[in-house]
């Protein structure tokens, strides 16, 4: 089983973690100012690269804390983790 590195707990099996998708998607500063298309983009559109991807993970069966990791979506290799 693939090992993921939790910044607080160290290497743990993948089944202890849940995936949170793209990292660094801010809530719009002024949602009322957005057009329907912009709001739809915030709700539904996320990056989907083939290659390095900064994404959120949560150690749900461990410390239950969230962290950001950069992972290559083609090789599934974790390149770096950061809280």
């Amino acid at each position: 089983m693939q090992l993921l590195t939790c910044p607080w707990c160290g290497d743990r099996e993948e089944a202890e973690f849940r995936y949170g998708g793209q990292a660094g998607v801010p809530y719009p500063a002024d949602p009322r100012a957005l057009s329907d298309a912009e709001w739809g983009r915030y709700l539904f559109v996320r990056d989907n690269p083939a290659g390095p991807f900064a994404e959120r993970w949560v150690h749900s069966a461990g410390c239950r804390r969230w962290f950001t990791a950069v992972r290559d979506t083609v090789t599934h290799e974790f390149l770096r983790e950061a809280p």
Binding site: R18, E55, T73, V74, H76
Partner: peptide
């Protein structure tokens, strides 16, 4: 659960 292009 995760995004992946690796066909595994």
């Amino acid at each position: 659960g995760y995004n992946g292009y690796g066909q595994r």
